[in-house]
Design a protein around this nucleic acid. Structure first.
Length: 530
RNA sequence: GCGCCCAUAGUUCAAUGGAUAGAACGUCAGAUUGCGGAUCUGAAGGUUGUAGGUUCGACUCCUACUGGGCGCACCA
């Protein structure tokens, strides 16, 4: 990774300066290398000199000059030049030769390009969607669904082993399930869809034997859950590794076990006829009921049991993606994690609500908009892209009109078009195999620009795996497509010049590869034709 | 009342404490006897909600306020 190489060089330069006694000895802080906004500031830049000015007891410019001259020598393989700028930035300009070699690397690595090792031998658990098995998925579920799936892909790309997990709140004691049971037994007041009516009809022999509304609800929820599962698999194209049933925790008396364990730790007390867990001692605002007056366990207790189960499975990182309506639950669960003694990363992400952007389409006021409706309306690729474009913690408005657009107006088609265009060029050549010939001929600005964008892909993967800011990926895809189209306009790929044609075919293949990898992590198709 | 999230271009959104705050759509003006014009080039458009603070430097961190969303169950 280019950025990593530069970081290492800076570190070496500091050490060297220290050995030569030009700099005082100090512990080197974390080195930041970024891509400057302005081209005149180079391809990469660092503020290291500004950062260490105080501990080094020298002016930023002095340090920058000190490091700059050493970096020039140390990085002769990478840089065309290293420039020092007020107030102390060091700007790096990559050399043509370096960029040309990178194209070779991208072609060699193919689908593996962008794969990192930062998560080597580590397991991650990502739980998302986990909708109630009593109805259909809504727009908000879609956000968690695609975010969770894409984040999982990214984390996998970073080298972790990811388990995608879905938790089903199907316990017979749950009030939703009981309400559903009432409906199943004909005692409900809720509106019945045709689908629900036929499900109930099919189940009627079993329902007659059901002990209570809880069991009836459970039976009906299984049918509903099966539909949700099929929908997720076939229409959302998300593959979960594990489907976990809450009811199953009860049947295996795991909830009882956790309860006993909490009692043993003397964290449970009685008040007002209920039993409370002392989570206020572990960072929560107040204690929480785990056993009701009626003697039934609460959802919180079963969720603690579920997390105990997760914590025991050897993950170094556990990620939960919850809807905004669950945010009050976060400190409680974090407190529980402390009680259970989980030592890995425990990240709970909250996805804010989703609305439809006002337009001709959203006349469906009053009706709840289902995710299925949206997918049918705009298509899976566009839905995924649009959901992913926005940061998880801002409320989003889904622009259905724009997402439906099958033209350059829609960013997803713009990106896919770049891929299809390359495929079209390749169709016109006989030899479509990997080209690593004559890459030294790539020296036009649009060519070099394109390469610079290509080599950023692993950096984007790294950043996103670390900070979960998924919106970076679609933005990267748009940027990549843009520089490709610029290249395409200025540089004809197939020409009389055989050697140059070979070189450009190599570049174009590398671009196709990176576009494909980018679309892949978003779960979006990379079409050969459109 | 308390807690969490948000406020950035006409709109939808970006921007690790860095340099002239960026995209997309919309608007306006251009480009093609060319590998897919489903493309490209350019322009207009901003006091980053308000007021303070922290520092070499703040959209970003802190405090107070204003406005919006979501929570604050012996629901899940």
């Amino acid at each position: 990774m280019t950025r990593e190489k530069i970081k290492n060089l800076i570190q070496k330069a500091i050490q060297k300066a220290q050995q030569e006694k030009k700099l005082t000895k100090f512990k080197i802080p974390e080195i930041l290398v970024e891509k400057p906004e302005e081209k005149i500031h180079g391809d990469y830049a660092t503020n290291t000199a500004l950062k260490i000015a105080r501990i080094g007891k020298m002016s930023p410019m002095e340090i920058a000059n000190l490091l700059g001259s050493r970096l020039q020598v140390l990085g002769s393989q990478l840089f065309e030049k290293v420039k020092i700028v007020e107030p102390g930035f060091i700007n790096f300009f990559l050399s043509k030769e370096y960029l040309q070699r990178e194209v070779e690397g991208i072609l060699r690595e193919g689908e593996e390009f962008g794969k990192l090792e930062i998560g080597k031998n580590q397991k991650v658990n990502a739980e998302f969607i986990s909708a109630n098995p009593t109805g259909f998925l809504h727009l908000g579920n879609g956000r968690g669904a695609f975010f969770g799936d894409c984040l999982s892909n990214i984390i996998e790309k970073a080298g972790y082993k990811v388990t995608r997990e879905y938790y089903i709140n199907d316990a017979m004691g749950n009030s939703q399930i009981k309400i559903l049971g009432k409906t199943a037994l004909g005692k409900g007041i809720t509106y019945l869809t045709k689908d629900l009516q036929s499900k109930i009809k099919k189940l009627s022999p079993k329902l007659r034997l059901a002990a209570d509304e809880g069991e009836a609800g459970f039976l009906l929820s299984q049918g509903i859950q099966k539909d949700i599962r099929d929908f997720i698999k076939k229409k959302l194209k998300i593959k979960f590794d594990k489907w976990i049933s809450e009811e199953n925790f009860y049947r295996k008396s795991k909830i009882k076990k956790v309860y006993d364990m909490l009692r043993k730790k003397e964290l449970v007390y009685r008040k007002e006829g209920a039993e409370w867990l002392k989570i206020s001692k572990f960072g929560a605002k107040k204690d929480e009921v785990i056993i009701r007056q009626t003697g039934e366990p609460t959802y919180f207790l079963s969720d603690v049991a579920y997390h105990q189960d997760k914590f025991e499975r050897g993950f170094s990182k556990i990620i939960n993606i919850w809807g905004a309506d669950h945010q009050g639950h976060v400190p409680k669960m974090k407190a529980a994690a402390k009680i259970l003694g989980f030592r890995g990363d425990f990240d709970i992400l909250i996805s804010q609500i989703v609305r439809l952007k006002k337009g001709k389409i959203s006349k469906r006021r009053g009706k709840i908009v289902t995710l299925e409706w949206l997918i049918d309306e705009v298509g899976l690729d566009a839905a995924r892209f649009f959901y992913l474009m926005k940061s998880l913690n801002t409320q989003m408005e889904f622009d259905v009109e724009l997402a439906k657009e099958r033209s350059a107006k829609s960013p997803v088609y713009y990106v896919q078009y770049a891929h299809a265009r390359i495929a079209s060029i390749l169709r016109k050549t006989k030899n479509q195999k990997q080209k690593t010939k004559n890459l030294h001929l790539l020296s036009h600005p649009p060519e070099l620009n394109l390469i610079k964008q290509l080599i950023r892909f692993p950096e984007v993967v790294e950043d996103t795996a670390k900070d979960y800011q998924i919106q970076r990926i679609p933005q990267y895809a748009i940027d990549l497509a843009t520089v490709f189209h610029q290249f395409y306009r200025d540089c004809k790929v197939l020409s009389e010049d055989k050697e140059l044609t070979e070189a450009r075919l190599g570049l174009v293949l590398a671009t196709k590869n990176v576009l494909k990898n980018t679309l892949y992590v978003m779960g979006i198709s990379a079409p050969e034709r459109m």
